[in-house]
Computed example of a mutant assay.
Amino acid sequence: MTTEQLIGQEGPPAINELTLTPVDGGTLLTLVITYPDATVRESVLATGMADGMETSYARLESVM
């Protein structure tokens, strides 16, 4: 478990829970990010972070 906080963000940080699970042919990565409230969550989503993460994970999967 890790924490993260955007620069300039006030209040408690987000909590990240990363789980790696063996599956046939590889490993399943599950990342659950819990934000302190819906306002922070919406602010983070508005940055395009979700699209960037999806692109990064797809790129990683393509080379594995």
Score class of each variant (00 low, 15 high):
Glu4Phe: 15
Arg41Phe: 11
Ser43Leu: 05
Ala58Phe: 04
Asp24Lys: 13
Gly8Ile: 09
Leu29Gln: 11
Leu45Tyr: 05
Gly25Ser: 01
Pro36Cys: 13
Ser43Arg: 08
Pro22Ile: 04
Glu42Ala: 15
Ala46Glu: 09
Ser43His: 04
Ala38Ile: 01
Glu4Ser: 14
Glu61Asp: 02
Asp37Arg: 02
Thr34Tyr: 01
Thr55Ile: 07
Val32Asp: 03
Ala14Glu: 08
Thr55Phe: 08
Ala50Gly: 05
Thr3Tyr: 10
Thr34Phe: 04
Leu18Ser: 10
Gly48Leu: 03
Ile7Tyr: 04
Met49Cys: 07
Gln9His: 06
Thr47Gln: 06
Ile15Trp: 06
Leu6Glu: 12
Ser62Asp: 01
Ile33Leu: 02
Pro36Tyr: 03
Arg59Asp: 09
Pro22Gly: 10
Met53Val: 11
Met53Lys: 05
Leu60Tyr: 11
Ser43Thr: 03
Ile7Asp: 10
Tyr57Gly: 04
Thr30Tyr: 08
Arg41Val: 02
Asn16Leu: 11
Val40Gln: 08
Arg41Ile: 00
Ala38Asp: 11
Thr3Gln: 12
Leu20Phe: 14
Ser56Phe: 07
Leu31Pro: 00
Gly8Val: 06
Gly25Phe: 04
Val23Glu: 14
Leu60His: 00
Ile15Asp: 03
Asp24Gly: 11
Thr47Ala: 03
Ala38Lys: 10
Glu4Cys: 12
Thr19Arg: 15
Gly11Asn: 10
Asp51Lys: 15
Glu10His: 12
Glu42Met: 01
Ala14Phe: 04
Gln5Leu: 06
Val32Tyr: 05
Glu10Ser: 15
Glu42Leu: 00
Ala38Pro: 01
Asn16Arg: 08
Leu18Thr: 14
